[in-house]
Amino acid sequence: MIIQIEPQSDVAIYKQITNQLIEGIARGHLRHGDSLPSVRAFAADLGVNMHTVNKSYHELEKRGIIKIVPKSGAVIEAQTKLLQGSPHAERIQHELKTVIAEALVLGMKTEQLEQELAMIMEDLKHNKQ
């Protein structure tokens, strides 16, 4: 799986890495049980600071997406159903709310939003790119 960052972007580099890894898992490029490269190898290959990669891994761990196992590195967690009311579900709801609120403020209609959601789901599930 290709990770591509834009160093001059407004989005912090660790955030770009986190987002791409999440998307890679959603698309099935990475599966549960797969391990991510070591922080040193990842940083060296990408040409970024080790702290940046480390920060991204910790963010992913905090979100319950990977597990950092001493000695064997970062492993992608197996996901079961996300229970209503769990901290992760609450966080997603909260983040969705912010985005939807902004969409409404900018004049997006409910149908448009639903259409958008369907398209994104379709893309993530079937488009391997």
Binding site: M1, I2, I3, Q4, I5, E6, P7, Q8, G24, L30, L36, P37, A41, F42, D45, L46, G47, V48
Partner: peptide
């Protein structure tokens, strides 16, 4: 031009 840095997780 938009400058990019890239790696492939499977290259190693």
């Amino acid at each position: 031009v938009k400058q990019l840095q890239i790696t492939d997780l499977s290259v190693r």
